[in-house]
Amino acid sequence: MALEKYIRTQLAEKKILLMTHIVLGYPSLDASYRIIQTMVKAGVDIMELQIPFSEPTADGPVIVKANQHAIDNGTTVEACMQLAGKAAKEFKIPFLIMTYYNVPYKYGIEKFTLRMKENNLMGTIIPDLPPEEGKDFLEAMNRVDIAPILIFSPTTTDERMSYLSSSTKGFIYCAARKGVTGKDTNFSEDLSAYLKRCRKATSLPIAVGFGIKHKEDVDFLKGKADIAVIGTQSIRVMEESGVDAVGAFIRGLR
């Protein structure tokens, strides 16, 4: 699988990879492009591009507002696909699509996967689609060799982790704690124990997201996880200090 292979290759050179999450169309599609450019230049290894949805139930206030703003701006699914395609063509890192299930469902699952394929997008993260409900989607993704990335949470049992791992490609996304995106995470012994449990349940690389803000957080994850995910914090930095500040923020994390 291309995505996993890329991650393994990068891990041979780096202790931990950085993945960032942005909301397409926030504050505008042009700005999204500039943010991608800045982040890639700053050394981000993977990017997760969120197609905005009106009911982002797994997200916290910052990303909720970004979703709403993007939709109010008139950001369409098609425009997001085009921008994601353009990014994947111009930059050499893998791009993933994050969104809620109604977006591919309304677009047409078959059409959505084909469109992702022709745009060289390498994976999906859909937080409201458990594999039990997503058989059609997972099959469609597998047919075109795009990684459907599933999520582990601290409440996931060992048995279920194994089950989820068997339906995932690329890597596993481990939510660091309960709750929604953007709130503080306690980088503690508990988190270490949970990540050990995740590691044991899957042979895939593991990414950790939710509440990662500082270099110390990324350092904490070295040796415990393969990818650190930065979402809300880079949006906050952009809101407070502009697109250019995002580059310095990302460089400061490693």
Binding site: P130, E133, T155, R160, K178
Partner: peptide
Amino acid sequence: MITTKYYGKFGGAYIPEILV
């Protein structure tokens, strides 16, 4: 495993992993 239920084509349990 998630317990799901459909009424014809409708219903289901589209829940995030954290609430399974």
